[in-house]
């Protein structure tokens, strides 16, 4: 057996699945080949490490709560997702949720000022990325995020879709959602971004002007091309 042949049988060798004859050949090769010895040692280490990858322990009470929810024994209607025990008290006590909006195409904002209503200007027929920054005091698991778009913009790839809803987890601190928006028509509009968790909703409005607040150069360019 040579190195190439040994390498092909490495996993069978590790799993003790070689035929007896092959196993003898493999051992003989291994005895005189430091390269394959290293190969085996590394592969064994890897297999050992795979078994060590941790999982967070199952939250105590989860099994009971989840089964009660599934059977309706908890007296509540099924919530499809976003179920985190103790969340309602946690959110009431300490979550300060705000949206920070900046407009910086293709880059993350360096400085963020919290505002309730943000202003964003987008050029007509162009796609610009609006970074919606959700700042939370603590992690929000299984929150429902909804973006309701005004008629003057759309998300490229989702033509005609006015509302985008999905489930996500927000980590404590800044969570940045780069939202690509394409200016559809010269108009004013208001985007509404909401986060819902356990019946509680936080929203932020973003005022969006399309094709109006152009940069001087862009305006000049627009005049020229008009």
């Amino acid at each position: 057996m040579n190195c190439k042949q040994f390498e092909l049988r490495l996993d069978d060798y590790l799993d003790h699945e070689l035929f007896p004859g092959e196993a003898i050949d493999a051992d003989a090769h291994l005895k005189q080949c430091p390269a394959c010895q290293t190969r085996v040692e590394r592969a064994r280490t890897l297999q050992h490490m795979l078994k060590e990858i941790p999982t967070p322990p199952l939250r105590s009470g989860f099994a009971r709560e989840a089964i009660a929810r599934a059977t309706g024994s908890d007296g509540k209607k099924h919530q499809r997702r976003g179920f985190v025990a103790g969340f309602s008290t946690a959110i009431a006590a300490s979550v300060a949720l705000m949206a920070v909006i900046t407009l910086l195409p293709h880059s993350l904002p360096e400085q963020l000022a919290p505002v309730e209503i943000a202003q964003v200007a987008i050029s007509l027929e162009q796609t610009q990325t609006v970074n919606l920054v959700f700042n939370t005091a603590q992690a929000l698991d299984g929150a429902t995020l909804t973006i309701a778009l005004p008629a003057n913009v759309e998300v490229p790839g989702l033509p005609g879709q006015r509302t985008i809803t999905w489930q996500t987890n927000l980590q404590a601190g800044k969570n940045i959602l780069p939202l690509p928006l394409k200016g559809l028509r010269r108009d004013e509009g208001e985007l509404l971004a909401s986060i819902e968790q356990d019946g509680k909703i936080k929203s932020v409005r973003v005022h969006i002007s399309v094709g109006k607040t152009l940069q001087p150069q862009a305006r000049l360019h627009a005049l020229h091309s008009a």
Partner: peptide, 22 residues
């Protein structure tokens, strides 16, 4: 948890499964 890598997603997935299976 292995599939999703997130504790909350793992709980959601199990919860959904139980709801479907009941």
């Amino acid at each position: 948890y292995r599939y999703t890598g997130q504790q909350a997603d793992a709980e959601d997935l199990v919860q959904d499964l139980l709801i479907k299976l009941y």
